[in-house]
């Protein structure tokens, strides 16, 4: 039995993930804390503000916690995947990557291996948020049959996977190119701000100024949130005084957008890795 190249990289990254108990624990608890504190606090306010708005008949009204929980999954996935490549910068600076670069392993295997590891972490976090959300009273999967729930969970995992791959590829490309961890930290922080806030993760984007609206419409995070809401809450619901409806077209468009983004990021990562010299 031989091991495919990317599995080797994946195995080591998972080994470290499990071994660093604090990293493991914090990455699993952190998203739950977002739900517990930010979610409940904001929820209380928004529910108060929107209490007077009449709900059109036949529409499923969801509370703010339900609305934003998709955003929390999206945000967690964004952070995990954007920071996922950092390990490569440390491996490079500590000399560990030299062993890998001097071996017959293909560079694509490194990119895919790290990607896979981040996907596992992200999916795990997403499932924890879903579980924790249900404990907090989030109204997921309204009126779904068990098989519909299974499909919905699969859909959520699919969206999280494609999105996480896109951003970990980006993160890997940046990490293999940069020299200092501090610089990398700066770049990633700079990226997360607009991606996170110019999206529909925490609030509707319809009230945005035009420029911001365009940005958020093409924001991969918006694509992810669309998919998550469609699968977790349903194709039409009423939240924050607004009606939401996601048809098959929106969902497919969002997924296509994510796939295009991910393929693009993979090409960039591959280009950076092929040029990378590690000594």
């Amino acid at each position: 039995m031989r091991t495919p190249g990317f599995v080797v990289i994946f195995w080591r990254d998972m080994l470290r993930f499990v071994r660093f108990r604090t990293l493991l624990l914090s990455s699993l608890v952190q998203p739950a804390l977002w739900m517990a504190f930010f979610g409940i606090a904001m929820s209380a306010n928004f529910n108060l503000l929107t209490a007077e708005i009449p709900v059109p008949s036949g529409l499923n009204e969801v509370n703010y916690l339900t609305f934003m929980s998709a955003g929390v999954i999206a945000m967690t996935t964004l952070f995990t995947s954007l920071y996922g490549g950092i390990t490569l910068l440390f491996d490079k600076n500590w000399g560990l990557l030299r062993e890998v670069f001097a071996s017959p392993l293909r560079r694509t295997d490194i990119i895919i291996g790290i990607g896979l590891s981040v996907v596992v972490k992200s999916v795990l976090q997403a499932l924890i948020i879903l579980g924790f959300g249900i404990l907090l009273g989030v109204q997921y999967f309204p009126g779904y049959s068990p098989s519909e729930v299974a499909v919905a969970v699969a859909g959520i995992i699919l969206f999280v996977t494609v999105f996480a791959l896109g951003f970990v590829f980006l993160s890997s490309a940046i990490s293999i190119t940069m020299e200092s961890p501090e610089g990398l930290q700066g770049v990633i922080t700079l990226l997360t701000m607009p991606i996170f806030f110019a999206s529909n993760a925490l609030y509707p984007i319809e009230a945005f100024p035009d420029v911001l609206m365009v940005i958020s419409a093409y924001n991969p995070l918006t694509f992810l949130v669309n998919g998550l809401r469609y699968f977790a809450i349903g194709d039409s619901f009423f939240a924050l005084g607004k009606m939401y409806s996601y048809g098959a077209v929106e969902v497919v468009t969002s997924l296509t957008g994510l796939v295009v983004f991910t393929v693009l990021m993979f090409s960039i990562a591959l280009w950076r890795f092929r040029r990378a010299v590690v000594t």
């Binding site: 190249g5 080797v8 195995w11 080994l15 000399g95 030299r98 001097a102 071996s103």
Partner: peptide
Amino acid sequence: IVFQEVTLDRDMTVSETLAFHGMLYD
């Protein structure tokens, strides 16, 4: 290759370090 600087993953065991290397070379 044995590099000039130590290039061991601090958080892997002795046998894991060797296994990782073996797997890199398929």
